[in-house]
Structure formats: structure tokens, C-alpha cells
């Protein structure tokens, strides 16, 4: 049982990685005052372009760089249209999601003659702390993972520093809360808003690649709603990085437990797949209930 317990926790730590990355990216846009519903599509772009470039160049590092660049480019255009042309970010975000699903399928058909799973034979991503995995209990849970997991923690921390401890972050947050103050400072809020979208693109690219690289494959709709769950995590975490990370971990734990339960309990797979959505919804409702009770006092 204890080995099952540690396996569930270990999978949860790995599973929270794409959520945490996407949520931190989404936090940048959220604090800059825009509701970014394109996290899902940006993740898909990153997952696809990264793994395909890694396969073509036979270099995972080049793949990661290409994935970052391609997704940042899409995010840049998305930001340019949304902020520069004052388009409705909800519609452009929806368009990015539709675009990403379409482009990945069309390119996949064009170059690999299939719209289903693209399996590549890339080397597994490095596991930098694998030696420490032998430590009792915490070893397998914390140290056996690929470098994406640790990079996600570092980038989540970096995101917190940039957003809350730097002048740049203060200005970016002012874009959402008090754009007039920025104008008085002689800064253009639109610049920060557009940059926040590109930053979210970079985070989402890594989130997507953290899904496709360990699999060494691209699966259609590999992001599978995680961009939306990340968006919910931002709200549940009240836009604070530590609380967002906690929310991501809870979702990942729910997912990890349900995968485990699938094997031992006889629950239909459809309900297993629904569990992250159920947990997210319940968390959203209980958060609202708690807020309501706090308001009454």
C-alpha cells in the first residue's frame, strides 16, 4: 500500500508540472488585466512544435528552443491583434485554440500522413536528481522526475519574483489594476499587456512540451483541458503563486488517484477522465462558499 501511496504522490508531482507552468503563464496575463482563454491552444502549439522539431533536428535542445519560439510567435500575433488592434481577447483566444487544433492536425497529416498519434524515438528527458530517488519515502516522490518538473518549480518561483518583487512586475500588474498610473509614469500599458501574452506563451510552450517530451510522442488534443484547469487554478489560488501551485497539486493528485483507482476499483474509464473536472468544479464551488461565509462574518 505504501508503495502505491508513494506512486500516487509521485505521479501527482509529475502531473502538476504542465498545470503549474500554464497557470503561471496565465497569471501574467491575468494580472495584466486580460482573461487568457488561449492557454489550451498555446500548450498544444508548444507540445507539437517542440517534439516535431526535436525529431527533425534529432536534438531535444533544439526542439525545446523551436517549441518556445513557435509558441511565442503565435502568442505574439495573438497579443498584437488583441492589444494592438483592440480585438476582443475572448474571441481571439478562442481563435487561437481553434487554430492550434487545426494547424497541428493539418501539419501532422501533411508531413506524417496521420492525424492520430505521432510517436518518435527520442531519448527520454534527463532526470537530474535520479540518484536521490533512492532516499526513503521522499526519494521516489520528489527526485525521480524529468528536468521539466524542476524547471517548472524554478520558473514558478521566478514568476513570483518577477511579478511581485520587481519593478517590471509592479508595472505589469498596474496594467491590470491601475493603467492610468502607468500612463502618468510615461509607460504604455498596452506594451505590458502584449508582453504578458508572449510570456504566457513561453510558459505554455514548456507546459505543452512537458507533456509531449516524456511520451516522445504527440497525441491529438494532448493538452486535454489542462489549459482550462490551469485557468481555474489561477482563480482558486486567488492569483497568488503559492496558492496556485497548491491548487495545481490538488488537481494533479485527483488525476493521479483516479488513474490508480482505474486499475484497482472497477470505475468506468469515462468517470475517471471526468474526475479532474469534478474536483475542479467542487473546488471552485467550495472556494465560493468559503468566501460567502467569510463575507457574512
Amino acid at each position: 500500500m505504501s508503495s502505491a501511496f508513494s506512486a500516487i504522490l509521485s505521479n501527482a508531482v509529475a502531473g502538476m508540472t504542465p498545470l503549474l507552468l500554464a497557470a503561471m503563464g496565465g497569471l501574467f496575463t491575468e494580472l495584466a488585466g486580460s482573461l487568457n482563454i488561449a492557454l489550451e491552444g498555446l500548450m498544444l502549439m508548444g507540445a507539437f512544435s517542440g517534439i516535431v522539431a526535436a525529431h527533425l533536428s534529432a536534438s531535444p535542445a533544439l526542439g525545446v528552443l523551436t517549441g518556445l519560439a513557435a509558441t511565442a510567435l503565435v502568442a505574439w500575433v495573438y497579443g498584437k491583434i488583441t492589444i494592438g488592434l483592440k480585438a476582443n481577447i475572448f474571441i481571439t483566444g478562442l481563435a487561437v485554440n481553434i487554430f492550434a487544433a487545426g494547424l497541428t492536425a493539418v501539419l501532422s497529416q501533411q508531413f506524417f500522413k496521420t492525424k492520430s498519434v505521432l510517436a518518435f524515438s527520442l531519448a527520454e528527458p534527463a532526470r537530474p536528481f535520479a540518484q536521490l530517488a533512492a532516499l526513503p519515502f521522499v526519494g521516489p516522490i520528489l527526485f525521480g522526475h524529468t528536468w521539466f518538473v524542476y524547471l517548472a518549480w524554478i520558473l514558478a518561483f521566478a514568476g513570483w519574483v518577477i511579478l511581485f518583487k520587481s519593478t517590471y512586475g509592479m508595472r505589469l500588474r498596474a496594467t491590470g489594476s491601475n493603467p492610468k498610473a502607468l500612463i502618468i509614469l510615461g509607460k504604455n500599458p498596452e506594451t505590458y499587456a502584449a508582453q504578458s501574452i508572449v510570456i504566457s506563451g513561453l510558459y505554455c510552450a514548456l507546459a505543452g512540451m512537458s507533456l509531449s517530451f516524456p511520451l516522445s510522442a504527440f497525441v491529438p488534443n494532448i493538452s486535454a483541458g489542462r489549459g482550462w484547469v490551469a485557468l481555474v487554478a489561477i482563480y482558486l489560488g486567488a492569483k497568488k503563486p503559492a496558492a496556485i501551485a497548491a491548487a495545481c497539486f490538488v488537481f494533479a493528485l485527483a488525476e493521479s488517484y483516479s488513474n490508480f483507482a482505474q486499475g484497482s476499483l472497477k470505475i468506468p474509464s469515462e468517470f475517471i477522465l471526468a474526475i479532474p473536472y469534478i474536483v475542479t468544479l467542487l473546488a471552485l464551488i467550495s472556494g465560493a462558499l468559503a468566501r460567502r461565509l467569510a463575507d457574512r462574518k
Binding site: T92, A95, I98, F99, G102, L103, V106, K115
Partner: peptide, 16 residues
């Protein structure tokens, strides 16, 4: 011999 998902790209452009 072209993926029907080409429509998604066009639709996203229309939306934008």
C-alpha cells in the same frame, strides 16, 4: 489528400 482540419485554420482567421 488534405486534412479537413484545414477548416479550423480558416475559421480561426475569420474569427480574428
Amino acid at each position: 489528400n488534405i486534412s479537413s482540419e484545414i477548416v479550423l485554420i480558416i475559421q480561426s482567421a475569420v474569427l480574428i
